[in-house]
């Protein structure tokens, strides 16, 4: 499968944080959920991909092209950053008038249709918008120049459940064109469980997992066991464990194999939230 984003050994060093050898690929026509706790390196990685900060080392290729083709690459990328970014004295109309000169493929009709669909006023200043409305406007803007990749940093934060469903529907519709792909960071992992094809998990500046969602949710599991049962488990058969008040939660990467080997029947299906908690808070 062709990759639209290829990241190899990406490093970026700050005084108090370091991104260490981040590598992953985003295949064409897929959605990748990029998860991790606050400060794990999601936004830094996204900023590096977008070339708004410079890496210390490593390679980034988008559509097979490197940074020399920055202008060409950016014509085909739609972006939502984690912070709001439109000057709030502008109106959606002002944004339309400006953006149609910034992107070759800007589609005013599409932009206006989305505004109508999301009930966003065209002539009101953004400062009068709620947080959710601002986010919707950013998403609408990211979509309205027919990008081939959407790079979205927390696009659903601040949205109410109804708006989140609307936005996710739009992402799914966007991906129906198999030329299009999405890299999406989010804290709302239930959204990712619905729409993502791949999950990349970053912790403390390192990618600790990058797999298909199905592989992850089908094969990974949480074994619920007592202290005595836990003591019998070979260290190489689990990834991490977390000690609770009355039992142990043990993260395993192959439920079937584990079940065959040990006589422990309670293996819960994993959610992305469970995975994050046990990977970050768990012990080895």
């Amino acid at each position: 499968m062709e990759n639209v984003i290829e990241i190899k050994n990406l490093c970026k060093k700050y005084d108090n944080f370091e991104l260490k050898n981040v590598s992953f690929n985003l295949p064409k026509g897929t959605i990748m959920g990029f998860i991790g706790e606050n400060g794990a390196g999601k936004t830094t990685t996204i900023k590096l991909i977008l070339n708004i900060i410079k890496e210390n080392s490593g390679d980034i290729k988008i559509f097979g092209l490197d940074k020399k083709y920055d202008k060409k690459i950016k014509e085909d990328i739609g972006v939502v950053l984690d912070d709001m970014f439109f000057p709030e004295i502008l109106t959606p109309n002002d944004i339309n008038k400006s953006m149609k000169h910034m992107y070759k493929n800007w589609d005013t009709v599409m932009f206006n249709n989305y505004l109508e669909e999301f009930n966003l006023p065209t002539n009101k200043q953004i400062k009068t918008f709620s947080k959710g409305m601002r986010k919707k406007l950013e998403i609408v803007t990211a979509l309205s120049h027919h990008p081939k990749i959407l790079i979205l940093d927390e696009p659903t934060s601040g949205l109410d459940p109804i708006a989140r469903v609307e936005v996710i529907d739009i992402f799914q519709h966007f991906i129906e064109n198999e030329e299009c792909s999405i890299l999406l960071s989010s804290h709302i992992t239930t959204d990712l469980e619905h729409i993502a094809d791949y999950i990349t998990f970053i912790n403390n500046g390192e990618v600790i997992l990058s797999k298909t969602k199905d592989e992850l949710l089908d094969n990974y599991g949480i074994v619920k066991c007592s202290k005595e049962e836990f003591k019998k488990i070979d260290k190489k058969d689990y990834i991490k464990y977390k000690k609770n008040k009355y039992e142990y939660d043990v993260l395993v990467s192959n439920k079937k194999e584990f079940r065959k080997k040990y006589n422990i029947s309670v293996i819960d299906k994993i959610t992305l939230d469970d995975l994050m908690v046990i990977m970050i808070k768990g012990e080895r």
């Binding site: 977008l50 014509e75 970014f85």
Partner: peptide, 24 residues
């Protein structure tokens, strides 16, 4: 004063994601 609005709303980071955004 437009620089203040840009800085307050972090427009500069976004403009760097646009085609030739920094130069333009």
């Amino acid at each position: 004063s437009t620089f203040s609005y840009d800085a307050y709303n972090k427009w500069d980071a976004y403009s760097a994601t646009l085609p030739d955004g920094r130069k333009n």
